[in-house]
Simulated assay, not measured.
Amino acid sequence: MSEQRDAAGMAALSICEALLLALQDRNLLPEREIVGVLRDAAATHENAQDPEDERKLHGAAAKLINEIIIGGNLSQRS
Rank of each mutant, 00 (worst) to 15 (best):
D25F: 00
K63C: 03
E46K: 15
H58Q: 10
A18L: 06
N73H: 11
L21K: 12
I68T: 11
L19H: 09
N73M: 05
I69D: 01
A41Q: 11
L74S: 00
L64Q: 12
E52S: 13
D40F: 04
R55Y: 00
G36C: 07
L29T: 04
A12E: 10
A41V: 08
R39Q: 14
A22R: 15
D6R: 15
A22K: 13
K63A: 13
A43G: 03
E31P: 03
L29E: 06
G9W: 01
Q4I: 11
S78V: 14
Q24N: 09
A41R: 11
M10Q: 15
D50E: 11
A60R: 07
L57R: 07
S75I: 10
A22I: 04
M10H: 05
M1I: 05
E54C: 06
E31S: 12
A43P: 01
R77I: 03
G59E: 05
R55E: 04
P51Y: 05
A8I: 05
S75T: 15
A43N: 08
L21D: 04
N47L: 14
I70W: 02
L20F: 03
G36H: 05
A7G: 01
G9K: 07
N27Y: 05
A42I: 09
R39H: 14
R32P: 01
G36P: 04
D50Q: 11
S75Q: 08
S14W: 01
A11R: 13
L64V: 07
L21T: 07
A62H: 00
A42T: 11
D50R: 08
D40H: 13
A7C: 02
E46I: 12
D53F: 06
P51R: 12
C16A: 14
